[in-house]
Computed example of a mutant assay.
Amino acid sequence: MTTSRSTARPAYVGKAAATGVGYTDFTDSGGRTVLSRALEACQAALADAGLSAADVDGLCSFGLFNDSVSCQAVATGLGCGDLSYVLDLNNGGSQPAFAVLNAAMAVASGVANTVVVYRALNGRTGKKVGSTRFDAPSSQFRYPIGLSAYPQYIALWARRYMIETGATEEDLAAVVMNQREFSARNERAVRRTPLTLDQYFDRDYVVEPFRSVDCTVEVDAAVAVVITSTERARDLAVPPAVIEGGAWVTGRGSGLDVADLHSWQDFSRNCQHRLADRLWSAAGVGPQDVDVAEIYDCFSPAVLYGLEALGFVERGGAGEFVRSGQAGPKGPLPTNTHGGLLNEGYVHGMNTVTEAVLQAQRRGGARQVPDANIVVATSGVLVDGSAIVFRNGAS
């Protein structure tokens, strides 16, 4: 039995927009609470938009393994008044685009007027996703054979993708080198030094096929963005990035184990393959209309998954697409213009979404894609994930 889905565009489309964005530094030095980082990023985002805490009546955030701080605590720290909308999500990197979509729905439906969406964590000096123990019903089988760290799980997915599509380690290298071209222009990025192919292959494996540079940089940081109505956003201090549509998917077989190793039927395709049709239907555009792609990249092959899943290239063609420069600064689809999570830092993809906002607002500085109009951002690399489309709303 199949369930039909509406092809009508969602009611929030065009009615809500992202405005101010805010960042803390991306660091490994520690010494600060997650709450202090959250407050700094939210205050910076409000100041960027020309707003204050008094304007905020909603907050939305997400965490993973209780590594963040609640919206209520942040509202208190900011000095907000009564809130009409609070949403604390879980599930880490699948959430950023989904969190912004939820804020957009709250604004468009009249539940809230101004929602701050943030992600804050001490991902370097606190709980590290890369080395956290993932207890689940199958732990008794995984741990005795040494399958214990998150990079190992993603490596299994990556290897299956490489077997099925013919992708090579040169393709992974191309992703890393391409994104270093962008991160060299990004003052926030932790990794900014250009990388050659020889230098890539000189790096040690973390777990095959991943070398250290194929893995994201864990940092202590916070990132925030303000969501309000499109009409109101046009009167604020920065141009609006209008929310044109988005999608979420929880694939069948999700949630019983880390990386769903025992239930997912095809490791060579991920969540973005399952939501792509709904994403483009909601946004009223297609991959051919996109000027910039910001693809969640906790590990380098996630970019190859995303390019193929969203229809930018044919199955198995993502490696050649990146190697030939088409995803680079001078290519037709600049991809991960902040350098990606691989280089800027791992704020669980919230910074991927805010980079999409900046590109749609044409405020990307030295890494800005000229005349960017339609920008897509994805969140998540395995079974659960989301994506969102922004449009330049200056006119």
Score class of each variant (00 low, 15 high):
5 R>T: 10
7 T>W: 02
9 R>F: 11
12 Y>N: 07
14 G>Q: 08
20 G>F: 02
21 V>T: 15
21 V>K: 08
22 G>A: 10
24 T>D: 06
31 G>D: 10
39 L>V: 14
40 E>M: 12
44 A>P: 00
47 A>C: 04
48 D>I: 01
51 L>C: 10
51 L>T: 08
55 D>V: 02
57 D>E: 10
58 G>R: 05
61 S>D: 03
65 F>S: 12
73 A>H: 07
73 A>S: 14
74 V>Y: 06
76 T>Q: 11
77 G>L: 11
77 G>R: 08
80 C>M: 09
80 C>S: 12
82 D>G: 11
82 D>L: 12
82 D>H: 11
83 L>F: 13
89 L>G: 02
89 L>A: 10
98 F>P: 00
101 L>F: 00
104 A>M: 10
107 V>A: 07
107 V>E: 02
108 A>K: 02
114 T>K: 01
117 V>G: 07
121 L>H: 03
123 G>K: 07
124 R>N: 14
126 G>I: 12
129 V>E: 09
130 G>D: 11
131 S>D: 13
132 T>M: 15
138 S>H: 03
142 R>A: 13
143 Y>T: 14
148 S>C: 14
155 A>L: 13
156 L>A: 14
157 W>T: 08
157 W>G: 00
157 W>P: 03
159 R>H: 05
162 M>V: 10
164 E>F: 00
167 A>Y: 05
171 D>P: 03
171 D>M: 06
177 M>N: 04
178 N>E: 06
185 R>M: 11
189 A>E: 06
190 V>H: 07
192 R>K: 15
192 R>P: 04
194 P>L: 13
195 L>A: 04
195 L>F: 03
197 L>E: 05
198 D>L: 01
200 Y>K: 01
203 R>A: 11
203 R>Q: 13
204 D>E: 12
206 V>A: 11
208 E>T: 12
209 P>G: 11
213 V>K: 00
215 C>I: 07
220 D>Q: 13
221 A>V: 07
222 A>S: 15
224 A>W: 00
225 V>R: 01
227 I>L: 13
233 A>V: 08
233 A>Y: 01
239 P>C: 15
243 I>M: 11
246 G>S: 12
249 V>A: 12
253 G>F: 08
257 D>L: 01
261 L>N: 04
264 W>I: 14
266 D>C: 06
267 F>N: 01
268 S>R: 06
269 R>Y: 02
283 A>N: 06
289 D>G: 03
297 D>V: 09
298 C>D: 03
305 Y>C: 03
306 G>I: 07
310 L>N: 04
311 G>E: 10
311 G>Q: 13
313 V>K: 05
317 G>H: 14
318 A>R: 02
332 P>G: 05
332 P>T: 05
336 N>Y: 09
340 G>D: 06
341 L>M: 15
343 N>F: 03
344 E>G: 06
350 M>K: 01
352 T>S: 13
353 V>D: 01
358 L>R: 15
366 A>D: 14
367 R>F: 06
367 R>N: 05
368 Q>K: 10
376 V>S: 07
377 A>W: 00
389 V>Y: 00
391 R>P: 01
391 R>C: 02
393 G>Q: 12
